[in-house]
Amino acid sequence: MIDIALTFAMGGFAAGLLLTMARILRAPTMADRVLALDTMVVNVIALIVLYGIQNDSDLAFDIAVLFALTGFVSTVALAKFLLRGNIIE
């Protein structure tokens, strides 16, 4: 039962990744692309955790933590750059 649910969840988040990719390709402004990339990071974290459940892997959570950290920092850095034209003033 868990296997079917895992496949379903992976399919759902993979479809979400495709939708965010489409939004990145067809976005009116740069801020929309940054938002879509942020959502993409969230989807990838979920996919990594699902992979960890499927293979009983402890490594997946360290990767998920790293992905969450870099995703947040890059989103804030891009938003700051769009706002001020500079990241560290």
Partner: peptide, 13 residues
């Protein structure tokens, strides 16, 4: 989780 994740990305589109 899968349904809400898909709803979030679908809403973005």
């Amino acid at each position: 989780g899968a349904v809400f994740g898909l709803i979030g990305s679908f809403g973005l589109w």
